[in-house]
Amino acid sequence: MNTDRIEKQILLRAPLKRVWRAISDAAEFGSWFGMKVDGPFVPGAHLHAVVTQTTVDPKVAETQKTYEGAPFELMIEQMTPDRLFSFRWHPFAIDQSVDYSAEPTTLVEFTLEETENGVMLTITESGFDGIPPERRARAFAANEGGWSMMVGLISLYVTRAQ
């Protein structure tokens, strides 16, 4: 039972350069993820972002409306072209009445690997053990609001993936 780290993998049937651009270009990242940032992704950049509606899934976009404009921050760490993109943020920092700045961040890493069938993308998010317990408890409360809808949308996929 690992409480500190999440790891996800997906095979993307697209050229490596295409995938790299989609994760390393702030505007492209924002387009699928559903956010808008105030500057380009460069190592060391401390960026301000807001939640926007994703352009790729109308149903998810609808649920993101609830949080549209909610601010959060991204601290860009490493960028190795076609290989690695990483940043830090405050997980689940969606309660606008809370100042998250003093809390520990988690590290999100996107790792790309070219395979015969496409690009294997691995995402890891780690550092959850450093997040204060009461903060985790608040995340549950926040989740009851709108994220649960989003989770419902993808439950079919999650079931299939297991």
Binding site: L12, D57, F92
Partner: peptide
């Protein structure tokens, strides 16, 4: 459940990325 929630957000985000790049 806490990690599950975050985990599911990433599942969802990855599907969007797949739609986007493919």
């Amino acid at each position: 459940r806490y990690l599950d929630m975050i985990s599911k957000h990433w599942d969802d985000a990855l599907l969007r990325l797949r739609t986007f790049v493919e």
